[in-house]
Design a protein around this nucleic acid. Structure first.
Length: 515
RNA sequence: GCGGAAGUAGCUCAGUCGGUAGAGCAUUAGCCUUCCAAGCUAAGGGUCGCGGGUUCGAAUCUCGUCUUCCGCUCCA
């Protein structure tokens, strides 16, 4: 089975067993929007709790908040999103490929820089020992010419982008005679602007209404509350603020199931540190976060770091944790050293001082920030794609059999226990109900008496239930039941009174945190 | 947006030459009581994505349209 087939099966399975449905399906669906079903919401909630506990419960110096999705429009000016979240796009009509216009121009500039380096190399060979590189760079006319061209183009480009002047951007591309890397032609469409932020209006009367944006990231809710939390919580640097919440991006193309959606959920923690210590903490959080992923037990080879060479406007170091999805290694989490970009920018835009006063040293400074930011939906997809297995079984009579099993880590599994009376008479259902009543306050349980016992086991395998408790005739006599493990399919006979202990050992987060 | 593929029951699909809409699985009820799917009986479930055209008659031919999936772009 190819990875592509596997991915398709996973999507079908997710729908069939109530994990993930296309949004508004009875109206033909809405592109790149999905709903979580009865199983999906449990899985997602468990993932969120695993993250929240690992951050907030296990660290004295990390606290949580839950900020609103609507924020003051000026927040997005301060954050840079109003400026930087606009992508100018252009298509080549021959190759049918789409490019970011600004990237095309940047690449053109970079190629010119390479030409300069070649000139320098040539000269170095020609002059040998006596070569004065600095002087050559300053005086060589060819280099000066290229430099001047590059400077002129970047100035024009910067102006065009700040003015949102798309015809000018196109003219720059034409003037530079930039060709499509695929088709090699200059047959371009117009440059069009795509704003990735959703907007809406607050205020019921149209003329009084103010445009507000749905937040494109949750981080700003933390930054604007930095002083509130620090002061009311008496937090001392270093400390962190964690948040789980929805964010919205009007992606031009959102694809690959729930990997890239227009409405998605993030789990973010912003860690505030002394300036100069940010890279130490950056490394520390990289390691901590990787450990969190690996504890799930999908195999260390499923993960890798990807260090960013090109950094966003706010960062001085950045790395991704990538997971091997059926469609390749892709980012699930980003760890960014955001410097003091956000807090200083809010200080400037709001006119309020956003400083931390260190009572021990008497210093006052704007803290630096190390961010860990993970996509909840991508975690759900990660768990589902790692857990989904089609297993070949050999039956006793030699015939073949297959089962689909979701090997979800027990702590994350939607249903923890299925309680199954072997037959639906002789008092067995009543015993099953008693057991469920004793477990349901702590664990999501399912009761099932329909169909043969084997079929019921398969149904539970398909949704990843780690334990099936089966009540048989012996149970009525000696208060024992069999407990069947999802992964091994092995069964053990245990006293009903032992169930709670066995289950809690396996499905608690304790086991993950111990690793 | 451009290019490619696809839309028939909850799922997977069949549907011949244009002639009353089908199967398996799933679901529900009943029977049977059995520790690893596929025992028996019955039932429910369809605007064949949508709209126009051709035709006595369209799931089928034709035109249009919508939606989804894949690629290009972006990122959590």
């Amino acid at each position: 089975m190819t990875q592509e087939e596997l991915f398709k099966k996973l999507i079908a399975h997710s729908k069939e067993y109530g994990f993930i449905f296309p949004s508004s399906e009875i109206y033909d669906g809405l592109s790149a929007v999905y709903d979580y079903g009865q199983m999906g919401v449990e899985l997602k909630n468990n993932i969120k709790r695993y993250w929240w506990d690992s951050m907030v419960k296990l660290h004295e110096n990390i606290v949580g908040i839950d900020a609103a999705i609507f924020m003051h429009p000026r927040v997005w000016e301060a954050s840079g999103h109003v400026g930087a979240f606009n992508d100018p796009l252009i298509d080549n009509k021959d190759s049918k490929k789409r490019y970011r216009a600004d990237v095309l121009v940047e690449e053109w500039i970079a190629r010119n820089e390479e030409k300069i380096e070649k000139e320098v190399e040539k000269a170095r060979k020609r002059f040998g020992e006596s070569f004065d590189e600095a002087l050559f760079r300053q005086t060589n006319p060819r280099i000066a010419e290229i430099r001047a061209k590059n400077d002129a183009v970047s100035t024009r480009m910067a102006a065009a982008l700040t003015e949102n002047n798309m015809p000018e951007v196109k003219k720059i591309i034409e003037d530079c005679e930039i060709v499509c890397p695929i088709s090699g032609t200059r047959n371009w469409t117009d440059v069009r602007q795509f704003n990735l932020m959703f907007d809406t209006k607050i205020g019921s009367v149209a003329e009084d209404a103010n445009v507000v944006y749905l937040r494109p990231e949750t981080a700003q809710g933390i930054f604007v509350n930095f002083l509130n939390v620090q002061k009311s919580g008496r937090m001392k640097i270093p400390f962190g603020i964690a948040q789980i919440g929805k964010a919205f991006r009007n992606e031009i193309v959102a694809r690959q199931f729930i990997f890239r959606m227009r409405e998605f959920e993030q789990m973010e923690m912003q860690f505030f540190v002394r300036p100069g210590e940010e890279l130490k903490w950056f490394e520390e959080w990289k390691a901590t976060r990787m450990q969190w992923h690996r504890a799930l037990g999908f195999g260390d080879e499923m993960y890798r770091f990807h260090d960013h060479e090109k950094l966003a406007h706010y960062a001085n170091a950045a790395a991704d944790i990538e997971f091997k999805f059926p469609f390749g290694f892709k980012e699930v989490e980003g760890i960014h050293s955001r410097t003091d970009f956000d807090l200083s920018s809010h200080e400037q835009h709001s006119g309020r001082k956003i400083r931390y006063f260190d009572p021990e040293t008497g210093e006052s400074y704007i803290p630096y920030v190390v961010e860990t930011s993970i996509g909840v939906d991508r975690m759900v997809l990660q768990v589902l794609s790692a857990a989904y297995q089609e297993e070949q079984l050999a039956k006793e009579d030699g015939s073949k059999d297959e089962r689909v099993v979701l090997r979800i880590p027990p702590a994350l599994a939607p249903v923890k226990v299925a309680v199954l009376p072997l037959v639906k008479k002789d008092g067995l259902p009543e015993i099953a109900r008693t057991i469920i009543d004793s477990l349901k306050l702590d664990y999501l349980c399912q009761y099932d008496e329909k169909d043969s016992i084997g079929k019921r086991y398969r149904r539970q395998d398909a949704i990843g239930t780690p334990f099936c408790v089966t009540i048989d005739h012996q149970s009525a006599q000696d208060n024992t039941v069999t407990i069947r493990h999802r992964d091994t399919m092995e069964q053990r006979r245990v006293a009903i009174s032992e169930l709670e202990g066995i289950i809690s050992e396996e499905v608690g987060f304790r086991k993950l945190f111990r690793k």
